[in-house]
């Protein structure tokens, strides 16, 4: 591999982590990002399950990209994604029934996560399997990271614990609202607010210096 390809690969991998982060910048895959992030462990499990589905289906779609006819491509992608989601569903039910029960139907709903279908259409169907894997890894890790951030905030404020470990002792009065549905909207809203503020400030700074 020459240096051009290495740096291209690195860009493909890194853009999903921050610059084009699926949740925080592109606002894709909102349903799982809000629904299962009421504790850090749920958020992490959901992120990793999506990462697995995204990587395997990106690889397969990229491998078959010249064989799938254009007219039925969306259906073909969905069937491929649904296959891997079924695998994850059954694996989780077998190895970690507690988490499987907590996440419930949301594991099955990975099928309709717009992030996964979007990456197949926008990237995997046009690139070599290696690149598609890197892209899927970056996007999947970005997704997991964003979910984990929301989950950590909601769990600390809403139950006063992190990964189930009590942080503040008995005197802490938990903000119950944070683990309930409205807390999801508020947490994501304020996270985006922080990011907006940060980007606008750095643009301003650049203008002042330039």
């Amino acid at each position: 591999m020459n240096s051009d390809e290495t740096s291209e690969g690195r860009n493909v991998l890194l853009k999903g982590l921050w610059k084009e982060n699926p949740v925080l910048v592109a606002v894709l895959g909102m349903c799982p990002a809000l629904a299962v992030t009421n504790s850090a462990i749920n958020a992490l499990a959901m992120g990793l399950a999506s990462l697995f589905v995204l990587m395997s289906s990106s690889f397969l779609v990229s491998l078959f990209r010249n064989l799938i006819p254009k007219q039925v491509r969306i259906t073909a992608y969905i069937v491929i994604i649904a296959t891997f989601v079924t695998i994850v569903d059954f694996l989780l039910a077998a190895y970690s029934p507690v988490i499987h029960k907590e996440l419930g139907a949301f594991i099955a709903l990975i099928v309709v996560n717009c992030l996964i279908l979007g990456r197949q259409e926008a990237f995997a169907s046009k690139n070599r399997p290696g690149m598609a894997l890197l892209d899927a890894l970056g996007m999947g890790l970005g997704f997991t990271g964003a979910l984990l951030a929301i989950g950590v905030i909601r769990e600390i404020l809403g139950s006063g614990s992190l990964f189930g470990i009590d942080l503040f002792g008995a005197n802490f009065e938990p903000w119950v609202i944070m683990v309930l549905p409205p807390g999801g909207f508020f947490t994501l809203g304020f996270l985006l607010l922080g990011i907006n503020w940060f980007t606008q400030r750095s643009i301003k700074e650049k203008e002042n210096h330039g």
Binding site: G183, F185, G189
Partner: peptide, 14 residues
């Protein structure tokens, strides 16, 4: 300006 768009929509939804 910082809350325009998605942010204000999410807070309203909350």
């Amino acid at each position: 300006k910082v809350v325009k768009g998605t942010v204000i929509t999410l807070l309203a939804a909350g």
